[in-house]
């Protein structure tokens, strides 16, 4: 599978923060709709580079990535097959996958 690389700092913001669109222009919801969902609709594997920002608050991460399951109908399995994170801080991908798993567990069983 070919790769599509996204760098959050250069393609979205060095200062990602906030949960909803109403919180600010670089919130988790905006990142999800503007950057993540279009990338995930492409056929390639998506490499998400997390380094280079000033940091990530839990509200941003949960809405951006947990929201893929809650609001955009991706499953945890879909996302794990599609996304690879690159980060100097190994706890960050772990935290994100935790939000995805939490969002999945809140979904009604099919």
């Amino acid at each position: 599978m070919t790769e599509h690389v996204i760098n959050i700092a250069s393609e979205f913001s060095r200062h990602p923060a906030g949960r909803y669109k109403t919180d600010g222009e670089f919130s988790g919801e905006v990142c999800r709709k503007k950057i993540l969902v279009p990338a995930l609709k492409r056929p390639e594997r998506v490499i998400i580079e997390l380094d280079g920002t000033r940091g990530y608050g839990s509200s941003f991460l949960e809405e951006a990535f947990g929201g893929l399951v809650r609001e955009e109908s991706f499953s945890e399995t879909d996302l794990k097959n599609k996304i690879v994170f690159r980060s100097a801080d190994p706890s960050l991908p772990e935290e994100i996958w935790g939000y995805v798993a939490d969002a999945q567990s809140e979904q009604p069983k099919r």
């Binding site: 913001s13 200062h15 990602p16 923060a17 919180d23 600010g24 919130s27 000033r54 940091g55």
Partner: peptide
């Protein structure tokens, strides 16, 4: 929620304090 408003502060801390502290300040304030 405007993280960019913290940039002058965070920039001035670079090289003076450990990176996790500037990251922690950004995360805590946002």
């Amino acid at each position: 929620v405007e993280g960019s408003k913290l940039e002058p502060l965070l920039e001035s801390l670079e090289g003076k304090v450990a990176a996790p502290l500037t990251e922690g300040l950004f995360v805590g304030l946002t």
